[in-house]
């Protein structure tokens, strides 16, 4: 069925947050695979469960609130969910690292950027203080910041520079998998272009696998090889970028394309998706997109459609997939 060369294999993952207000079903039976050296874009709207997925892979869910209720997370063949916290600690940073949306949350305001990179290198790569210091300067240069600025604090840098520092930290241990959670969402487009270019260069240089989490389909189209579209905690469609952008199938994916204004050939009117995403505290029993779907049938309310492969590498979770295929994939 699937080959073992996948670096990460997430299977039927479900995660919930148990809060005083009730249970939030943030991730619901999610399947996701990332091959060695591959870059996968995880796209979805606010609340789709993207960050929760990332935190679960790193085993960083908030204790006593976030719970994995089903599934497995295999990294290089090892089940991450079964590792002790010490074993996980050595994987985090060493083998898997993460870049967050807001670099200020991952950078420590009271240490210089040089000290922070140095710290990671000493802890994970067991370099001496002197070696780590030298290497920290080099890492800054790699992300386009003069090494002499290693003695400055995060607040002395612009947003784009801070994000480049977090990337330097995340990559300084040469991880096999980098999870970047909306790394450029807070940045202006010209700065976003710099950061994405940097990630692409480093990725090819170190052959790191990448999960790029974003809500921006443009960012995915230009920076990923594969795409997984997430809705209400589950993957509704997965494909190579070419297939997804040229033949989107799931009604939600198509709805997203209809909603987007076109920079190059303006539409006279947009075609929005009616309604809003479901409340994660009261998810429908059937297809989570059913309430907003324009091609729904009675059975869509009754059961959840599984992710089915409709052509090599192209998977869709929709009971009406044959109808979609017959109509051709033009959004």
């Amino acid at each position: 069925m699937h080959m073992s060369k996948d670096l990460l294999d997430v299977c039927d993952l479900s995660v919930e947050y148990r809060t005083s207000d009730g249970t939030v079903k943030a991730v619901n039976g999610l399947d996701l695979r990332v091959g060695t050296g591959e870059s996968v874009g995880l796209v979805g709207e606010t609340g789709a469960g993207k960050t929760t997925t990332a935190l679960t892979i790193l085993r960083l869910l908030p204790p006593r609130v976030g719970f994995v209720t089903s599934g497995s997370l295999k990294f290089d063949g090892r089940e991450l969910l079964e590792l002790s916290s010490n074993e996980m600690q050595s994987i985090r940073g060493n083998q898997i690292s993460m870049v967050f949306q807001n670099p200020m949350t991952s950078l420590n305001p009271v240490f210089t950027v040089g000290q922070q990179i140095q710290g990671v290198l000493m802890q994970h790569r067991h370099l001496s203080r002197e070696e780590a210091k030298k290497k920290a300067g080099e890492m800054l240069e790699v992300v386009g910041i003069p090494g002499r600025r290693a003695g400055e604090y995060p607040h002395q840098f612009s947003g784009g520079m801070r994000q480049r520092v977090s990337i330097a930290i995340a990559l300084s241990c040469n991880p096999r998998l980098l999870i970047a959670d909306e790394p450029t969402t807070a940045l202006d487009v010209t700065i976003q272009a710099q950061v994405l270019e940097l990630m692409a260069e480093l990725k090819s240089e170190f052959s790191t696998s990448l999960i790029l989490i974003t809500h921006d389909l443009g960012v995915v189209a230009e920076n990923c090889e594969r795409v997984a579209v997430m809705y209400a905690g589950t993957i509704v469609e997965g494909a190579d970028v070419k297939d997804l952008f040229e033949m989107p199938l799931h009604p939600y994916t198509r709805g997203l394309f209809g909603s987007l204004p076109d920079l190059e050939s303006p539409k006279s009117r947009l075609t929005p998706i009616p309604g809003s995403p479901p409340d994660p505290m009261g998810l429908p029993r059937g297809c989570p997109f059913e309430p907003r779907c324009v091609i729904k049938e009675p059975r869509c309310k009754a059961a959840r459609p599984p992710l089915m492969e409709v052509s090599p590498g192209h998977t869709v979770a929709c009971f009406r997939v044959n109808h979609l295929l017959n109509r051709g994939g033009v959004a």
Binding site: S158, G160, M161, V189, T190, I191, Q192, A193, Q194, L196, E197, D216, L217, G218, V219, V220, A221, E222, N223, V241, K242, F245, E246, F257, L260, L263, E264
Partner: peptide, 21 residues
């Protein structure tokens, strides 16, 4: 304009990247 990511499959799109802040 060149920096705006376009949601289309366009592997040959050329990026002109502005340096500096």
């Amino acid at each position: 304009l060149a920096a705006v990511p376009v949601p289309k499959y366009r592997p040959d799109r050329k990026k002109v990247i502005l340096r500096g802040d």
